[in-house]
Design a protein around this nucleic acid. Structure first.
Lengths: 194, 194
DNA sequence: CAAATCATGTCACGGTGTGACACATTTGAT
DNA sequence: ATCAAATGTGTCACACCGTGACATGATTTG
C-alpha cells in the first residue's frame, strides 16, 4: 500500500510494455536490454532487478495460471477421469487468458518470431514440473502416469494456443472455447479411431 | 576421404567428449567454453566453429533420428492409425538410442542437471516442427491433428526417456523396449478408462 | 526528526557469441 | 613438384548478457 509497491508495480508494467513494443517492432533477438532500459528511462541494471532477462519481461511467469491448474482439485465430478477434468479446466483458463490484454500480442509474436518459442517452452516446463509433482504428491497417480498426464495437458494447451495464434495472425477471429474443445476432440479421436 | 574431413570429424568427437566429461564433473553452467577449449587444446573461437554453443556440443542434433521418424512412411500396416505407427517406430528408435555410447551418460545428466532440460527441449521442438510439417505436407493430416500427433509422440518419447533416466540414476537396469511400451500402454489407458 | 530499509545508478567483471584479418595447411590441377 | 584456391585455426576486437559490490538518495518506521 506504500508508494514503493505502487511504483514497483508500475515499473514492472512499464518494462513489460516497453519490451513488448520493442520486440514487436524489432524482433526478439534484435532487442537488447539497453534498448528496453533506454525506452523506460532507467539503467540496464535496474531492468535486471525486475526481470531476469528479456524473456521474463516479455512473458512474466503466469504463476497464478499454473497454480490454478495445479490446484484444481480434480473433483472427479465428470466421468472423464483426471485427464478430462484437467483439460476442462484448461479450456476455461485458456478462455480467460484470451481476455487478458497482452495475450493476443504475444500470440502473434509466437507465430512471427521463432525465437519466441524458447520463452513459451520455459513456462511449459514449469507447468509440467508442477503439475506432475502435484499429481504424484496427492497420490492420485503413479510417476509415469502423472508425467504423461502433465505432458498431454500441456501439449493440448500448446496446440490450441498455436492454432489460436495462427488464426490471429491471419486475421481470423476464433472463439477460444470452441478452439480448445476442437483440440480436445481431435485428441480423443487419435486414440479411439485407430 | 581427405585428411580434412577426418580431422574435422575427430575434432567434433573430441569437443563433444570433453564437454561431456566436464559437464559431468562440474555441471553445465559451471562449464565454460574456455574450459572446453583448454581441455581439447584449441582456441575458444574454434569451439564455436564446431558447435554453436555448449548445449549443441553436449547433444549434437540427432538429425538422423529425426529424419528416420519423419521419413517412416507410416505404412498403415497395423490398424493402430498414424499415431500408433509412429509410436512403434519411436519404440524401436529409442531402443537403438540406448545402445549408443553416450546415451546413458546424457540420460543421467538429464536427471541430475536441471539446466539440461533446455538442451533436450531444443531438440524436441525441432522434432515436433519437422514431424508435423511432414504430416501436413503428405496430406495425411490436417494442421491441428498433425500438431497433436507430433506433440503426443514427442511427449511419449520424453516420458519414456525420463523414466529410463531415473532408473539409470537409481542403478536400475531397465529394458528400453519394455519401458517404452509401458508408456504407450499408460497413454492409451488415459483415454480409454475415463 | 533519526535510523533502518529499499530502489537506483555506477562500476567492474566474467562469460557468450560473431565478424574480420592473418597465417598455415590441405587440396586439386598442371 | 609446384602453384593457386579452398579451408582450418588463432588472434583481436566487439557487442551483449547477467551478477556482485558499493555509494547515493528516497521511503518507511519508530
Amino acid at each position: 500500500m506504500g508508494i514503493r509497491e505502487e511504483r514497483r508495480a508500475r515499473m514492472r508494467r512499464e518494462i513489460q510494455g516497453a519490451t513488448l513494443d520493442l520486440v514487436e517492432k524489432q524482433g526478439l533477438d534484435a532487442t537488447t536490454i539497453g534498448d528496453i532500459a533506454a525506452r523506460v528511462g532507467i539503467s540496464e541494471r535496474t531492468v535486471f532487478r525486475y526481470y531476469a532477462s528479456k524473456e521474463h519481461a516479455l512473458m512474466p511467469g503466469q504463476q497464478s495460471l499454473i497454480d490454478t491448474l495445479v490446484g484444481s482439485e480434480s473433483a472427479h465430478s465428470t466421468s472423464s477421469g483426471i485427464l478430462g477434468d484437467l483439460l476442462a479446466v484448461c479450456r476455461d483458463l485458456f478462455a480467460q487468458e484470451v481476455e487478458q490484454s497482452d495475450f493476443r500480442r504475444i500470440s502473434r509474436l509466437m507465430v512471427q518470431e521463432p525465437a519466441m518459442t524458447r520463452v513459451v517452452v520455459r513456462q511449459e516446463r514449469i507447468l509440467v514440473e508442477a503439475l506432475s509433482a502435484a499429481l504424484v504428491g496427492r497420490g492420485q497417480l503413479e510417476s509415469i502416469q502423472a508425467l504423461l498426464v502433465a505432458e498431454v495437458v500441456t501439449a493440448a494447451w500448446r496446440v490450441a494456443w498455436q492454432s489460436f495464434a495462427r488464426n490471429e495472425v491471419d486475421g481470423v477471429d476464433s472463439d477460444p472455447v470452441e478452439l480448445f474443445e476442437k483440440t480436445i476432440c481431435e485428441l480423443g479421436k487419435l486414440f479411439h479411431e485407430g
